[in-house]
Amino acid sequence: MPLEQWVASCAKQLKCHWRTVDPDQLEELAADLARDARLRAMHPISAALTWQEPVLPSDDAKQGV
């Protein structure tokens, strides 16, 4: 998946959890996550959920919310 598309998809998933955060900040965060080779190798939604695991309620992490 092209980097721009990966970042956009990851940012969209991050927005599902942090609805009040500025979308530009979420794009920056997604771009930072893309620099992590382990996360970049994942689907962007999986990468966002993996990164969010420490702060997500366990039900949300399992459901992909």
Rank of each mutant, 00 (worst) to 15 (best):
M1K: 11
P2S: 02
P2Q: 03
L3K: 15
E4P: 06
E4T: 07
Q5R: 07
Q5S: 06
W6E: 07
V7F: 01
V7I: 15
A8P: 00
A8T: 06
A8K: 02
A8W: 01
S9D: 12
S9R: 10
C10G: 01
C10K: 00
A11M: 00
A11P: 07
Q13P: 11
L14S: 10
L14D: 09
L14N: 10
L14V: 06
K15E: 03
K15H: 01
K15R: 05
C16M: 11
H17F: 15
H17E: 13
W18V: 07
R19E: 12
R19H: 07
R19L: 13
T20C: 14
T20K: 14
V21W: 05
V21M: 10
V21F: 08
D22Y: 04
D22S: 07
P23V: 11
P23E: 14
P23H: 14
D24I: 02
D24H: 03
D24K: 03
Q25S: 14
Q25V: 12
Q25A: 15
L26N: 03
L26G: 01
E27L: 11
E27Q: 12
E27A: 13
E27D: 12
E28Y: 14
E28W: 10
L29F: 10
A30H: 00
A30K: 00
A30Q: 03
A30C: 06
A31D: 08
A31K: 08
D32L: 11
D32A: 15
L33Q: 00
A34L: 04
A34W: 00
A34T: 04
A34P: 01
R35S: 07
R35H: 03
R35T: 08
R35E: 07
R35F: 02
R35I: 06
D36W: 04
D36H: 06
D36I: 00
A37D: 11
A37Q: 14
A37I: 15
L39G: 06
R40Q: 09
R40L: 14
R40F: 11
H43F: 03
H43P: 11
P44E: 01
P44R: 04
P44T: 07
I45S: 10
S46C: 09
S46P: 10
A47L: 06
A48C: 08
A48L: 07
A48W: 06
A48R: 10
A48P: 09
L49I: 01
L49C: 04
L49R: 15
L49A: 01
L49T: 08
T50K: 04
T50Q: 04
T50L: 00
T50E: 01
T50M: 01
Q52M: 10
Q52G: 08
Q52P: 03
E53F: 12
E53Q: 09
E53H: 09
E53A: 14
E53T: 11
P54I: 12
P54Q: 15
V55M: 12
V55N: 13
V55Q: 15
V55F: 12
L56E: 06
L56Q: 00
L56K: 02
P57K: 02
P57E: 02
P57F: 03
S58Y: 04
S58I: 09
S58F: 05
D59S: 08
D59K: 09
D59E: 14
D59G: 06
D60S: 13
D60V: 08
D60H: 12
A61E: 00
A61M: 02
A61D: 06
K62S: 10
K62P: 05
Q63I: 13
G64R: 02
G64Y: 07
G64N: 05
G64V: 04
V65C: 05
V65M: 02
